[in-house]
Every structure is written in structure tokens, then in C-alpha cells.
Simulated scan of single mutants.
Amino acid sequence: ARFIRALEKAGRLNRAIEYLPTEEELAQRMAERRGLTRPELAVLLAYAKITLYDDLLASDLPDDPAMAEDLLRYFPQALREGQRDAIGRHRLRREIVATQVTNSLVNRVGPTFVKETMEKTGLGPADVARACVIVREVFGLSDLWDAIDALDTRVPATAQTALQLDILALMERTVAWFLANAAHPLDLAAEVATFRPGLETLAGTLDRVLDAEESSRLDARAASHTAHGVPEALARRVAALPVLAAVPDLVRIAGRTGRAVPEVAAVYFGLGRRFALEWLRDKAVAARIDNHWQRQAVAAIVDDLFAHQMELTVRVLEQDAETPSVEGWVATHAAAVDRVEPLVAELRAQATIDLPMLTVASRQLRGLTTGA
């Protein structure tokens, strides 16, 4: 509904002409837990592409040298190999790049992703697109998407959708991270060069930084995909994404403290286990959401919990230059820890967790980072 209203406000859409539901009809559908029909979604998909294309074409994104591969991928392989220089001089290269990025974004993350991210961050569509390209390259998402597409007719469509949703969850987390934490304007090549090695390092050391329970959860996620015919290698790559989503935090902390990524990861995930941070984030995501503002509240809580984990990791690493230890840090901050642990234990004992409870938990955890 918000996306439709935004298009109307911008003068880009007349919902009556497009046979889209009125505000009253949308409210009724929400009350009945019904969404838009496929034809209605197709209309919004088209408008999302038209709008984003215009915005990107008006920006400097198509001129970025880092977008050269997107330009090349538009052409057949034979032309890419023999006419690379000519393609780079193509008179419609800007339009082609804008089209490629637009189609990739809207097809992969949906028609409202860019608009919703703009609302959360206050940044423009080109900024969001840049962050999406960075995440795509750092995490090798193009290969994952191609592998999922190659499963057409080989596995149920629901299995492919589940894989895509796992990637979308990664995108939601990491795109917001780069928009909030990286220098602007985002330097595509520099950000990829900074964070891609950290991704490769963490992916190669997961068996050393995850405990038995976390490894078991990763195995279970992979098994949920292979049970529907997804190849083991692809299933495990996608199953690891919730863990690998921490890479931006880990690389930033490593640069801040001078520690290696595996050492940072051991403390980061150790703190997550010690204070049930992943469990709290899972409960926040699973909380019942009835409107846009509750969705924003959930996003804020999740972001805060990640921020607490990052700042706590820095504090642990800076406390001991030789052998940083989560338990050693806990022992020297017993008063603050003693205020948090009973609260977390009480939350774990509850049958249901709501947003006010999570808000209180996040505030108590913030006390660990402020020394309160």
C-alpha cells in the first residue's frame, strides 16, 4: 500500500486506470490476511522497474567503471570475447547498465525493496543500488542466483523460493549495513576489495568459529534444502549465509582492532551465544507484525542487537591484547552482566515474545556496551 501511495504521490501511477485496489479495499484485504493478486503484482513490478530505471539513468552509477561486467553480461558470450572494447564504447551503454541493474534488483529482491530501504536510510535509489551491487559482488550472489535458476523443473518451485528468500534475508541485512556504515558515495571497487577477502576467510574457517549447536543449525538449514532435491554444495552455501552476513561487522572490527578475521569471529559469535543475541534476533523477526510501523520497530531492534554485538566484540578484543576471552570480559563486568542474564533467561521461559519485551532486552544489552 505504501508503495502504491508513493507512486501516486510522485505522479507515476493512477491506480484506477491500472485496476489496483483502493485504500479501503487494501485495508479489507489486510484484515483478511490477503495480499495482491498476480496481475496486480505484475503491474507494480512494471512500475517499479520503470521508476528505478529512470532514477539510475539520471545518476552516475552507469558511468562507474565497476559496472563494466554488467554491461558485458548484456551481450552474447561470443561478442563479449571478441568485442569487449567496442561494447565499452556502445552509445547505449548507460541505458544498458541501468536496465541490467534495474532488472536484477527488482527480479531478485522484489518491487518494494529499494523504496523500503530508501525510507529506512533516507538515501536515494542510486545509493541503494550501489549497496546492492557491493553485496552481490562480496557474497558472490550472481553465481548463487544462476545455480538456483538452473534448478528449474528439477526441484519444486517452493524449494527455489526458499533459497531465494534466504538470499533476500542476507540482502536486507547487509545492504542496510553498507548504507549505514560505509563512506558515501559508495566506492564499488574499493568496498568489494575490502570485504570480499573477509568473506572468503570466514567461509573457510566456519568449522573453527562455530560451536556444535551452531554447526548443527547450519546442517539443519542445509538439510531442509537438500530434502527437496537441492544439490548439497548449493544448499550448504545458502545455509551458511546467516552466518556469513556478519562479514561486514567482522571486517570492520578487524580493521579497528588490528585482529585477524577468524579471531574476531570467535569472539563475535562467542558473545552471540553468551547473551542469546541470535535467539533474540530470531524472536524479533518472528514477532507478529500488523503494520508498517511495527515492521520498522522490528528492523530497529534487530539493527540494535547487531550493533550491541559489534561493540561488545570490540570491547572484549581491546581488553586483552594477548588472549581475548569472552568469559574473561564477563568476569570483569559482572555487575552489568548480572543485570542482563536473568532478563534473557526470563525471556527464554516465555511462551511468546512481543516487541516491548524485545525492546527492554535490547536496552539492557546496551548497558553492557556503555558500562552502565
Rank of each mutant, 00 (worst) to 15 (best):
H308T: 12
A1P: 00
M171T: 00
A16C: 02
A254L: 02
R274A: 15
A6S: 07
D290H: 14
G82Y: 10
L170A: 05
T99M: 06
L56Q: 01
R281I: 14
D143W: 01
L355A: 01
P76G: 09
L44K: 00
L358K: 04
P39M: 15
A240C: 03
E172P: 03
D54P: 00
L44Y: 02
R38V: 13
Q160F: 01
D152I: 10
V285H: 14
L168H: 12
A349P: 01
V209N: 03
L343C: 03
A254D: 03
Q160I: 02
L71Q: 03
A48M: 08
E24M: 12
G140I: 09
A16R: 14
A176V: 06
L92T: 01
Q100T: 13
V114M: 14
V97G: 07
R237C: 03
A126F: 10
A287R: 10
P242L: 05
G255K: 02
A129F: 09
S325N: 05
P242G: 11
L45H: 15
L20Y: 04
V106S: 09
D143L: 05
A10G: 07
L206M: 09
R15F: 12
P156Y: 05
A284R: 09
R295D: 14
L61F: 03
P356D: 02
A169Q: 08
P156F: 00
N107S: 14
A182W: 00
Q83Y: 11
G258E: 08
V330C: 15
L165Q: 06
N14I: 03
A331G: 03
I17E: 13
G255N: 05
